[in-house]
């Protein structure tokens, strides 16, 4: 899939549409979001006034769990402990912070660069610990996306907003006045047309 297969800014004001397109390009480049958005349609009507932003997302990176980069096993026989053997060190700092937060600093012991002992009941905790989410690049991307759309792209005066954000699409309808149902419907229609393009 190519990035930004559809990128349309519609507006009755042609100059405004052109400059808004440049503005969106700048923001996406600044926040390295080009690869995240597959198709995008924007509608602006300053007279109404309304700003509708719709896009289909391509979030690829899933959450990173403990089992993805470490072996999690029972500790020494007869002791209540879980042994974590790291295979990659890239996430050690985040992992330690998360473990300290959950189990308390006094229960975590790092004997070796790659071995961490957690003093908890292994029968209860072992399976949960394997699934422990250490990093969420997807969440971080979504945060950046919200930053881009809500804080940089939508005109600042448009403070009445409705948004829909899922892993597959994003829709923002914003205005200076109370939102009209037809604007929201228009946003939904725009999303629908993007989806049909995607499926062709």
């Amino acid at each position: 899939m190519e990035q930004l297969e559809t990128f349309i800014v519609e507006s009755p004001d042609a100059v405004g549409a052109k400059t808004t397109k440049i503005l969106i390009k700048d923001v996406l480049a600044d926040l390295t979001l080009n690869r995240v958005i597959g198709r995008m349609k924007v509608y602006v009507d300053p007279v109404q006034p309304v700003f509708i932003f719709t896009a289909l997302l391509r979030l690829t990176t899933p959450a990173i769990r403990l089992k993805d980069f470490a072996k999690v096993d029972m500790g020494a026989l007869g002791k209540d402990e879980v042994k974590i053997e790291l295979q990659r060190e890239a996430f050690t700092v985040k992992l330690l912070n998360k473990l300290w937060e959950k189990y308390g600093k006094e229960n975590i012991e790092q004997r070796d660069k790659k071995i961490i002992i957690v003093k908890v009941d292994p029968i209860k905790e072992l399976d949960a610990m394997k699934e422990f989410v250490i990093d969420e690049p997807r969440q971080e991307v979504l945060d950046r996306l919200i930053d881009a759309i809500a804080l940089r792209i939508i005109p600042e005066g448009f403070r009445v907003r409705k948004h829909e954000l899922t892993a597959s699409h994003v829709m923002f309808v914003a205005s200076e006045d109370t939102l009209k149902p037809e604007w929201i419907q228009r946003g939904k229609d725009m999303l629908e047309s993007l989806r049909s393009e995607e499926n062709v």
Partner: peptide, 17 residues
């Protein structure tokens, strides 16, 4: 603003606005 010699208002993209 009135204390200055001149004011430059930097506005946006749309004619109507």
């Amino acid at each position: 603003i009135n204390e200055h010699d001149l004011a430059v208002f930097i506005l946006g993209n749309y004619e109507h606005c």
